[in-house]
Each structure stands twice: as structure tokens, then as C-alpha cells.
Design a protein around this nucleic acid. Sequence first.
DNA 1: CGCGAAATAAACAGCT
DNA 2: CAGCTGTTTATTTCGC
Length: 565
Amino acid sequence: MMVESATETIRTTGSNQNGVSSLSSQSDGGGREGGSNGDANGEISPVDLLHLQQQQALQAARQFLLQQATGLSSPSSNEVKQSPVQVPVSMAMMTPQMITPQQMQQILSPPQLQALLQQQQALMLQQLGSKQLAFQQQLIQMQQLQQQHLLTLQRQGLVNLQPSQGPVAIQSLQQDLVSLCLWRSAPHEEHTGTHPLYGHGECKWPGCEALCDDMGQFIKHLNNEHALDDRSTAQCRVQMQVVQQLEIQLAKESERLQAMMTHLHMRPSEPKPFNQPLNLASSVPLLKRDSDVYPEGLPHPPTSAATPITPLRQGPSVISSSSLHSVGPIRRRNSEKYCTPIASELAQNCEFYKNADVRPPFTYASLIRHAILEAPDHQLTLNEIYNWFTRMFAYFRRNTATWKNAVRHNLSLHKCFVRVENVKGAVWTVDEVEYQKRRPPKMTGSPTLVKNMISGLGFGSLNANYQAALAESSLSLLNSPTLVSNSSAASLNMPHVGHDDVSSTVEQVNSNGSCSPGLSPQHQIHVKEEPAELEEDSRPVSLMATITPTLERDMEEDLPTEELE
DNA sequence: CGCGAAATAAACAGCT
DNA sequence: CAGCTGTTTATTTCGC
């Protein structure tokens, strides 16, 4: 009941479920998950920021109007000529309608909103610093905006230049327009019978929606209702801000994509992401020119459960081939092998998996374990595990019956998952020792690899391999603001890669000590019999003890770092 | 080809 | 009674 409702919420409200503002709505079961929410930490939500910014924009616009009224009302052609178009003013006119914060949330994916949040914070700081300067620019931009609007209308032969607007340097405006058209793909609007602010019989001016039967009526309406006044300029200003933010976002994501692709090209063994069925096509024109993707390149609203979404200019930075063609019902996992550490892979591709409907190349067991260890007190209810899956992976936002069954199956089947009952119900914890026993890192277990490591690779790569295996086998708190409450829990949960010499003692302590203090008394710890479990005392796992003290020290030092990921 | 691990499906019991 | 939770069994798929 709760599960389904929570899942439904996630599915229907899509993007804003994923980690930014409305996470709280899905944190149930005693609010265990609430601790990792941004809101709880006093962070400002993107929505708040947008509100703030809009207010700021309105204020700035009013100031501008005030100044304009005292002598700047007719912009001189010089000003227009000298001012390079640095800000995409045209978008204020081209964008079909005002983007409200709510809409913004729908348009932007959670990770993008997060990025936006950061950018806005940075921007606002900048603005505070150089408000005067910025204001002057805004003033100029506003004038350009007005003039351009007029020009547009004039070209359509629909209005005449109003004398009150003063002389307009058509030529320079045209130049500006050209440059704007380079920046954005919008020149066609001029010649078509449509107007970017007019569609479906209504005015698309932000917050207007006035019905207009035809273009003529719309133009009349535009001139009457959206003339140069306080309100219109304020709205323009806000729109500019919105576009600016999107621009910054776009640039940043572009840059990231570029870096990612560059990085991937350097790995000849790995396939190029865009050769794969995965839809990264939208990122290709991005590299060429922004103008071609905008506004089509805008992130789409969250998809329904039925439609896999495309990664939003993001892709796994270390995406493996398995990740790529594991779209769909293919049920293979291979990250469990060797050197694909779930922690680092997840950390690096977290945003990707959140948005792309790609099957994560991890086993259910490793995912469950990761989810549990990510929790502040290293325990989760079943429902919370479900929520983690849906939150972290777009893939798990559909076929819920299937994977939830698999999760339950795994929880029951594997000895490493320990069900602990407390007063509030049952939670699941991870017995790290059992986990390591169940699936010993192939690196330490494989004679071939061990031999290669020792003989060939040198210490650096050995250490790298070892870290990779460690990352896989160690817990990491991905995106978790709350770190492990006690370092002892970490060390307890972190046996030295399946060292059997310590496992017994650790296990003993672990079963009692892995839960954070202050929890309600636990009972009914059911001990499972792992199928075909081997007590491999003779397994060459004591490699660690035999290599070098340095390595061991490295490992121990690395563990907490891994934790912080 | 056999084996093991994992995924998937499904039956079932207990509980709320 | 429905739905969730947890357990268990069977089957399939895949990599080695």
C-alpha cells in the first residue's frame, strides 16, 4: 500500500521527486530518508532561489523604469550600437511563455536543478557584488529588447514605429539580430505568419493567456496590454534571467559533455556513447553550436513510466559497454566482476542513472547493500530500499513488480542482508562480512589476477586495482550529506576484504554494533543459510597481509575517503 | 558442456 | 479481503 503509493507519486510527479525539493513527500517510514534531503539542511531550494531572483528582477526592473522616466526613456542609437549583445535578450521574446518556478522544475531534471541552484547561488553572489554594473547592462539590454520587439513587429508590417520610441538604428539592430540569430535559431520567426508570443489563439506573454482570434487582434492586444511599462519590463527582465540561467546551464553541461567525450575518446577499448542505441543524439549538435538545439534542446519534462527518458546531456563518465546495451529487459550484470566498483561508478554516473532509463550494471545485491549503507544509520526498511531504487535509477521507475520482487528475493536469499526488528517494524542491515564472503572480490580470489598484480603491474596500478576492488567492496555514502555517524561502524563494516582471520570477530561485533547507538532493542535476527556457501579458509585472500605494509596502510587510509564519496 | 551466480517468476504464509 | 512483507522454489540466462 505504502509502497505503491510512494511509487506512484514518484512516477507521476517524476522529476521533482528526485532529490531536490519534493523528496520529503516520499520519505516515509519514520523519515529515515529525510536526513539526506537538502531542505533539512537549511539549503535554499531552487524554487526559493527563483522566487528570490524574480523578486530581485522585478525590483531591478522598477528601478530601471524609474531611471527611464527621469530621462532615459528614449534610448539613443549610440547606446544600442555600442552595446554588444551579451545576453540572450531575444529569448525573452521567443520563449513561448514565462517559465514559472514550478514549470522550471518540470522542465529541468533534478540534477539540472541542482546545478542550477549552484549557478544561481554563484550568480546571485556575483550580482550582489557588481549590482551597479549589472544593472547598467540590464538597462541596455532592456532597451535592445524593446527595440527588437518593435523591429520584429515592423518587419511583419504590422506596426509602425512609434515616435515615442525615438530613433532606432535599424541597421545596428539588424546586426544585433544577426548576431542573435547566430546565438539562437530563431530568425525564421520573422517571416512566418506566426509570432512567438502568439499560439493556439492566445497570447503567450508570461501570465497573460489572453484569447486572440487572429494575428491582428493579437498584435493589437500586444501593443495595448504589453506595451513598455513597468510590468512588461519586469516580466522581460525575469524572462531574461531565466534564459540566462538556462544559458549558463547549457554552457556548463556542454562543457561537461565535451570533457566526458574527450575522456572517453582516450579509452580506445570503450565504445563511443553516441554509437550506442542510447539516445545521446541531442548532445551532438550541442557540440557544434548551441543555436541548433535551443529551445528543442531544453530538457524535457519527466517522462511517464512507459517512456524511457534520454540522458540530459549527461552520460556515464565511465560508462561501460554493459551499461549501454543493458537498456531493456536484458538481465545481465557484470559490474560485479573485477574492477567495476559500484561506489565509484555510481558516484560518477549518479546523475546519469537518475535520469536515463538505463539498467544499472549492478546486481540487486550490490545495489541493496549500497542503499542500506548509504542510509545514515546503515539500515533501511523495505519501502525505503524501494524508494532508493526509484530515486537513484530511472530504470527502476517502471516494472515495479518485477524488481521489487527481486529486491525482496535478494534480501531473503542472501545471508549478508540481515533483517532486524525494532519497535517500529523491521529494517534491513548489511552484514558486510557476509557480503564479502558471499562474493569475494575476484581480484583477490583470482590466481591470474593476483599473479598479474604481483608480477607485472607495479605498485601504482596495483594500488589502483586494489582501490577499485575496495570501492566495490566498501561502502560509500553517495550523495549523502550525513556521514557515518561513528567511524567504528565504518571500520567494523569494513573487514579487510574478506579476511577470514578477522571475520569471525568482526562479524560478531558487527551483528551488534553495526546499528547506530540509541536504536530500539533488536531481536529476532534471523540467520540465513546462504546457498552453497563455502567457508573458503584456504582461499588466497590473505594476499593483503602478505603484500606490503604500505598497501595495507593505503587501504585503511582509503576507506574513509571512499566513505565520503 | 557443466557449473555457479544472478535475474526473473511465482507460490505461499504471515501480518496489517 | 487486499496488499505488503518475507521466504522459498523453479526456471532461465549468462559468463567462465
